[in-house]
């Protein structure tokens, strides 16, 4: 069973995607390089930055690190950069849908909430 999300970065496209489950044994160690990459990317971003969360599950420890990622994005947005978050949730999963709603209320970044049939 996978306990860490699949992470896909492409600097040239300005795209970052996390998918799958997130409950890594050492959540800080897992997310540290992602946050570092994002911080470095923010110094020299593409005209549009798109972060996609297509998670089927994340534990509460991961939720903190997801907020850290969104906070970096919010800072970019405040600096006038074009950013967007795609929040995918399985159509049956009201908890994952609500989590996306909650994050979008917590950070000032454009969110797209997208339901899909897994």
């Amino acid at each position: 069973m996978d306990d860490s999300p699949k992470v896909k970065f492409t600097h040239e496209d300005g795209k970052l995607e996390l998918s799958g489950k997130s409950l890594p044994e050492d959540v800080s160690a897992f997310y540290a390089p992602i946050l570092e990459w994002l911080e470095n990317y923010a110094l020299n971003p593409q005209p549009l930055t798109e972060i996609t969360f297509k998670l089927t599950y994340f534990n509460t420890a991961s939720s903190k690190l997801i907020l850290d990622m969104l906070t970096i994005l919010e800072k970019m947005s405040e600096e006038g950069k074009n950013v967007v978050v795609n929040w995918y949730y399985p159509e049956y999963d009201e908890d994952m849908r609500d989590a996306g709603q909650e994050y979008s209320e917590m950070v000032d970044v454009p969110f797209k909430h997208i339901s899909y049939n897994p």
Binding site: S28, T60, A61
Partner: peptide, 9 residues
Amino acid sequence: LSDKGGAGL
């Protein structure tokens, strides 16, 4: 996050 990775949530 605590040293043990707890978020108090």
